[in-house]
Amino acid sequence: MDYLKAFLVGGLMCVVGQILIDRTKITPARILVLFVVLGCLLGGLGVYGKLVDFAGAGATVPLPGFGYAMSKSVMAEVDKNGLIGVETGAFKAMAGGVTAAVLFSFLASLVFSAKAK
């Protein structure tokens, strides 16, 4: 059941992205930015958390989930450390994902070369 929910919710978010790409002039990069910001704001409002409870990875794997993780972390840090949490929360949330992206991408740049086009 959780696989079905993850599939449906995650798939639908991609459909929203696809419609934005096809029907507007929004580039994929802007969609990523938009989705992360939206996820963060919806997380702050407590809405996205409910979607995560419902859909699991269907809500955390798409980019809005990245924004949601930031909002969740920043609020947890504020709870723990007060105002300083505003400054530390966002990066704490993305530490794992961004470090992984940097590390693996660097290694990939050592191993792989761009194919001639």
């Binding site: 992360v36 704001l41 909002s71 972390s73 966002a90």
Partner: peptide
């Protein structure tokens, strides 16, 4: 922009 949004939320 994720960081800025999270800062606003925080």
């Amino acid at each position: 922009y994720g960081t800025l949004a999270a800062t606003v939320v925080g």
